[in-house]
Design a protein around this nucleic acid. Structure first.
Lengths: 230, 230
DNA sequence: ATTCGATACTGCATGCTGCACTATTCAAAC
DNA sequence: GTTTGAATAGTGCAGCATGCAGTATCGAAT
């Protein structure tokens, strides 16, 4: 005779609620705006959170289930013709948990930029390889910048899906724009810099590098005061 | 009838060399500078790549093994007293692979910022919660900025561990500094903005928000031309 | 003599991603 | 009128990545 009284049987494991992550609260934050179907949630999170908390669609399907396990949301099966969809709604406990989370310390920002890795290891490739990597980084930023501008100017024409949230979206957008601008401008600077290099490797402390370091020492932005050495 | 002659049996899977990721090339790039022990590699990658490609120490122990499986590096067991350590050295195939990687397209940059998530969901907390989250983001950026300044001004005194690579480190540092500066400056702007809010939620299209949107529409930086409405 | 921090890793549970896959609905092109 | 393609609405699984705990040695300071 089998007992599952006090340890982790297969059944129990499957019911174990895994811990809430920042991604869980990201989804909970969306649910605080209105109820969403899992599919909508995945789309919306991808669109609206992609520049603050970029997560895979796959995860965004899993998170609401976890919220239900924790009692922070409820799931409701709806039928549209032959097809089902699951609507998720935040609970009072969910709103309380979200409020609690807002008082905690956020993790520090994390930037992952493969193009910058190419710069650090540039001596293993050509000047053109490096320039191409930087160009792609700038092109991507310029593209995203223009998307943000398009979306946000639409808000002036009343196109915000949740008008009462406009002040939040717009303040967030100011960060995105400054960030993408920085990338475009810095790539411009970096490309004029590498254009003066005879090769990618072995240069060491050039006169221009020394000039940049003196800027850094004196807390001057190199974008505003680029080195003037020929 | 089933045959497993040319497919993935359990044994075969365990010996399968898993595919090379960007992190593999990050480690390979370090090995191109000089041979390293696994522990040194983990330390060095954490220190020097943390702002371009932040990866866990755990992963940095696993990557060199993968490089050996692929023939891009060799491992040598050294004995220091009773204790072993594994030295990894890049192979010619490793240098070739790294050169090949330099010609490929980098992934677009990825930014993960929990504090910005707090801004988007600010209506679920107090003005103080939001201000605290932004302050922490700025404090973290200011701290990292000063670390970068310290390290780099040291290069003026000949403290670069690989002097021939100074031009690369310094150009990379200019990005880091501009990025951390942006965070500090933007938080300053955002905090003056939220200081005008009577509450976190329900404000929608305020006059100041409209002024910011007009800035965005006209491609003016909000940091340089903040809204002048009281 | 002991304690503390640095060196030098490994194992495991869990988190997260990418890809492949299923299946329905609707609209437009042929 | 039917085929085709895109959007809707997801699930399963392999494999990549992280955090944490644990093991053990070594050198320097108290």
């Amino acid at each position: 005779m089998l007992h599952y009284s006090n340890y982790c049987t297969l059944q129990y494991c499957q019911e174990m609620a895994s811990r809430l992550t920042t991604s869980s609260y990201a989804v909970l934050g969306l649910l605080a705006i209105r109820p969403w179907a899992a599919y909508e949630l995945a789309q919306q999170a991808t669109r609206s959170l992609r520049f603050a908390w970029p997560k895979s669609e796959r995860l965004l399907y899993a998170e609401p289930k976890k919220l239900v396990e924790h009692g922070l949301a409820t799931a409701l099966q709806e039928s549209v013709g032959q097809r089902n969809r699951t609507m998720y709604t935040i609970t009072d406990e969910g709103r309380a948990a979200l409020q609690g989370w807002m008082t905690t310390s956020p993790q520090p920002p994390l930037l992952e930029a493969e193009a910058l890795l190419r710069l650090l290891f540039a001596e293993n490739g050509s000047i053109d390889d490096l320039a191409a990597a930087l160009d792609e980084m700038a092109a991507d930023a310029a593209e995203k910048r223009s998307q943000v501008v398009t979306i946000n100017t639409g808000y002036l024409d009343g196109l915000h899906p949740f008008p009462q949230r406009t002040h939040l979206s717009v303040l967030f957008a100011t960060f995105q724009l400054e960030f993408f601008d920085l990338i475009v401008k810095w790539v411009g600077f970096a490309k004029t810099e590498i254009a003066t290099w005879p090769a990618t490797g072995g240069l060491g402390m050039t006169e221009r590098t020394e000039a940049i370091l003196n800027n850094i020492k004196d807390q001057r932005s190199v974008l505003e005061s680029p080195p003037t050495i020929p």
